[in-house]
Write a protein that binds this DNA or RNA. Structure first.
Lengths: 197, 197
DNA sequence: GTCTATACGGTGATAGAC
DNA sequence: GTCTATCACCGTATAGAC
């Protein structure tokens, strides 16, 4: 709190608090007050750094997008086999979730349902979709697979399905959730096997 | 339900308006005022029928859950082959979306990200998850498939992935979306084929 | 850059008449 | 049952001092 305020700038503390609260409780349901209280920052300071709540939301999504891309980059660098590189999206999101300590679903899909059209944060939802489809497409091409568009679409479908499983689990007590990401990876791998073989 | 009353009851008009606005614009982002204006109903009338906004939200989710289950029932009754019955969840959701004229993602997954814990509407999110996993499980048993829990989880993963595709498309202009439900159905069918053969 | 205090608007909810 | 009118609150944003 006071110690962290001496070490970390208000802007960073705001982004951290926003990331936690927006992700856990939802964007629309989280008031600016709650973010300010958690960050230990006054309203005026926030408005000196961000263009209102919308700007704070956009900055939160941008930071999350950047971190996610870097995590995927790191995992990608560990693999040389073309199919492993294609499937790395699942390993990367598993690592990302472990790093962030997240337990709910995809922050970008969640934001897609909450943000009104024209919101500055929309840009990062589109960036997430394009990063996923673009990379998966390119990796499919590199693997020499036919119809790389279909490969990207199918793997994205598995990816979204896995993350949606966590969203369901968070709101359905008792629902058995056994490693959706691992399940999605195996499903995608089996499907790829029928195309490479 | 019937046409006996001269004018459509206020309660029904409210549920219709709520269904359209909550689904299209999000629950938290939609004010009660907007629902009242679209339904042509006064505030007091709404509070005579529902226990506040939370009650209206819960009633909206309940109605959607009921309609969805009935649609699935109807599609299920058209098939006798065990695998077709298992895959009917995709045909049913395609028909449901056509009937409702929806273009966005899953209303229950969306609500899962928006509703705070303890909200009366949470019950219907859980009901949706349990309906899906329970039926898929039973249909897998009826089909004589091994590990019916895994079958249900994998098919639910495909189902959620397909609907998430529409959520992405709604917020990412230019993203190619070619029949996610059909893609999910084929993916699930291929995966089932490796288990039945 | 940061804080305290405050103004403003919108939203959920109620009272009372018809 | 339904409406008109109104209230009370909370969340967003700003003004001015340090």
């Amino acid at each position: 709190m006071t110690a962290s305020s001496a070490t970390r700038p208000a802007r960073e503390r705001l982004l951290t608090a926003a990331g936690e609260l927006f992700y856990e409780s939802g964007i629309a349901a989280t008031g600016v007050d709650a973010v300010l209280a958690r960050a230990g920052v006054s309203p005026a300071t926030m408005y000196a750094h961000f263009a209102g709540k919308d700007g704070l939301v956009a900055a939160y999504l941008e930071e999350r997008h950047t971190t996610w891309r870097q995590t995927w980059d790191a995992v990608l660098a560990e693999h040389r086999d073309p199919v492993d590189r294609l499937l790395s999206v699942f390993d990367a999101v598993a690592r990302f979730r472990q790093q962030q300590g997240t337990r709910r679903g995809c922050a970008f899909l969640a934001a897609a349902t909450e943000l009104p059209s024209g919101h500055p944060g929309q840009r990062w939802l589109a960036a997430d979709s394009r990063l996923l489809t673009g990379r998966l497409h390119d990796l499919a091409v590199a693997a020499g697979l036919p119809d790389p568009e279909a490969v990207a679409s199918t793997l994205l479908l598995c990816y979204d399905g896995a993350l949606s499983g966590y969203a369901r689990a968070a709101t359905t007590p008792g629902l058995p959730v056994d490693d959706p990401i691992g399940r999605a990876r195996r499903l995608a791998a089996d499907w790829l096997a029928t195309r490479t073989g």
